[in-house]
């Protein structure tokens, strides 16, 4: 494993911890999109089908369990926790999941490496992950005051995607036959979606003002 990959995974882990910290200790999910969290739960559930069939490493299995467990528990918290659910911005979080899920499923059925159940589900998870942040970005744009933890959560998620691109560049030059178009294109699209957010995140950080996205 190269340094970019490890840094990417650690950033991803940090993003989940920041979100759990906000939900668990502050007992608030204000500004957090349930739609995005449900999409991530679906992304991990469809991508990690191999957790029971293939063993890669202890690291791999543990991380998969962490991402599965955290994404489902975040969804549970927002939907069912007595206190947390009251802070959910239901009226603002109106993005419709199926507008993302259906096109991703159709694309996965037609554009994949192998036509097997596991492979199509895995490809679906890549496409869906690429766009799963959209409901969260829309919600951020509607939220006038973005709190620090929510801003950091989205920043860490974007950083994780960016680091994965460096990881692929590194692997392309160091490993023979490392060419994975579907993974790469979906990953680059996903990272580009954060470009606008990053711009305003750094501007607010530079000027030391509260993060706010233009409507």
């Amino acid at each position: 494993m190269n340094i970019f990959r490890l840094a990417g995974d650690m950033t991803h882990l940090a993003s989940v911890l920041v979100l759990l910290l906000k939900i668990h200790t502050i007992k608030s999910c204000a500004g957090v999109s349930l739609k995005t969290q449900e999409l991530y739960a679906l992304v991990f559930a469809t991508r990690y089908l191999d957790i029971v069939t293939d063993f890669i490493s202890v690291y791999n299995t543990v991380m998969k369990l962490i991402f599965l467990g955290s994404s489902f528990s975040i969804v549970w918290y927002i939907r069912h926790h007595r206190v947390v659910r009251r802070s959910y911005d239901k009226d603002q979080d109106t993005f419709r999941h199926y507008l993302l899920m259906i096109p991703c499923m159709l694309l996965a059925l037609f554009v994949h490496e192998k036509f097997t159940f596991k492979e199509v589900m895995w490809t679906f998870s890549l496409y869906l992950e690429a766009v799963a942040i959209l409901p969260q970005l829309v919600l951020l744009q509607r939220t006038r005051n973005i709190d620090n933890l929510t801003g950091q959560y989205v920043f860490l998620l974007g950083a994780y995607r960016g680091l994965y691109i460096f990881n692929w560049i590194y692997r392309y030059f160091t490993e023979p036959h490392f060419v994975h178009w579907i993974t790469w294109i979906a990953g680059v699209v996903q990272t580009l979606l954060y470009a606008d957010f990053f711009y305003y995140y750094f501007e607010s950080w530079k000027n030391n003002v509260r993060l706010q996205l233009p409507a």
Binding site: H12, I56, N167, H180
Partner: peptide
């Protein structure tokens, strides 16, 4: 392409 290569990523 080889399955085991990308499937080791998360």
């Amino acid at each position: 392409s080889n399955d085991t290569i990308t499937k080791d990523e998360l």
